[in-house]
Design a binder for these strands. Structure first.
Length: 324
DNA sequence: GGGTTCTCCAAGGCTCTACA
DNA sequence: TGTAGAGCCTTGGAGAACCC
């Protein structure tokens, strides 16, 4: 069946091993090369190469040969089975990377491939994930209606802390999942540094430092006191775990970005849109927003989606928490 | 029911090119 | 020569399926 077929071509080898299996690259070099891609990229490219191998087996051709016409037929088969431009483009990138390693050929740079991708773009154009965003006040009003932190269940306290952190910092769930208790510095405000490699991490480019201010107008929305309550609550079962967020149920293992995403009432990434949109609408400086959430200095991502008028204030968190 | 894994797809940064 | 925008590759998020 299809599952057995997939298993057969998984073969325990990554796309890099498939690329370099006939070359004499030493194992230790191979390990460094494999580590040059993030896990999600490796997973995605492994999926593409597995499909490519199945396709080549069906067509009785050698999957290691970069035959452009065959590659285009393969990409067409993806397109015809309902895959969007982004998926076809990702598959092309995977094949391009594999053949650049094995044959020093960039599939994506070949003229007919470029033209083909334009055709795919026209046939099934990508659509933005968020054409509108929700009002951040909806979540803030919910948290305001809950009891004091000490009276909340562990589940409520976990959801509240994640929700407030997502809104106040505007960070991805990946970043929130990397917060460790030993990197939280307590002072006038709370500062959290991130050691892990993030999506936007680059050489000579520091990760954003998350700054949490105490919020006095509505104590129930104070992220600092919620964080304190969460640490007190989890202290009894934290053990040696340095990661801030722990599972709600026993054995209370550290949770990953995916689980944190599940905890957020709205879709995880939409918190990033909701908070930046509200702050922009309140008149915050665009450069403040870009640096606060960790986009690159010249990034046009924010401008492409929001592009609000520029104001004078530079306080991100107070504007997010400012209820009407 | 909570948490993890897998696949699909939009988000994101870097580079290059066209054009004013 | 500066800049807007397209192209390309890489990455994490969303959601379904699955496991415990």
């Amino acid at each position: 069946d299809a599952r057995a077929e997939q298993q057969r071509y998984s073969n325990g080898s990554s796309f890099i091993q498939c690329s370099l299996e006939s070359s004499n690259v030493p194992n230790d070099v191979m390990q460094i090369l494999e580590g040059s891609f993030s896990q999600s990229t490796t997973n995605q490219y492994n999926t593409t190469i597995r499909k490519w191998r199945i396709y080549c087996h069906t067509e009785n051709i050698d999957y290691r040969v970069p035959d452009v016409n065959r590659i285009l037929s393969f990409l067409t088969s993806l397109c015809n089975t309902g895959h969007s431009y982004s998926s076809v483009n990702g598959a092309k990138a995977g094949l391009s990377t594999m053949f650049s390693l094995s044959h020093n050929i960039r599939i994506g740079e070949i003229g007919i491939v470029k033209q083909f991708m334009k055709g795919v773009y026209r046939k099934c154009p990508p659509t933005p994930k968020y054409s509108t965003t929700w009002d951040a006040d909806t979540v803030l009003n919910l948290f305001s209606s809950w009891d004091d932190n000490d009276s909340l269940s562990t589940k409520q306290l976990s959801l509240k802390l994640v929700g407030l952190l997502a809104l106040v910092t505007g960070q991805r769930t990946q970043t929130l999942s990397c917060i460790t208790v030993n990197n939280i510095v307590w002072g006038e405000s709370v500062q959290i540094s991130i050691d892990s490699i993030l999506k936007t991490s680059r050489p000579n480019r520091p990760n954003p430092i998350l700054t949490l201010k105490k919020y006095f107008p509505n104590p129930k929305l104070c992220v600092v006191s919620t964080l304190t309550a969460y640490l007190n609550r989890t202290n009894s079962y934290r053990g040696d775990s340095l990661l801030l967020f722990l599972g709600i149920q026993k054995p209370h293992k550290p949770v990953g970005a995916q689980t944190i995403g599940n905890w957020l009432t709205y879709t995880a990434h939409s918190f990033r849109h909701a908070s930046t949109s509200k702050v922009a609408a309140k008149g915050a400086n665009v450069n403040t927003i870009i640096s606060h959430v960790g986009w690159s200095r010249n990034s046009t991502v924010f401008a492409r989606f929001y592009n609000r008028p520029v104001g004078k204030s530079n306080d991100f968190s107070e504007k997010v928490l400012d209820l009407p």
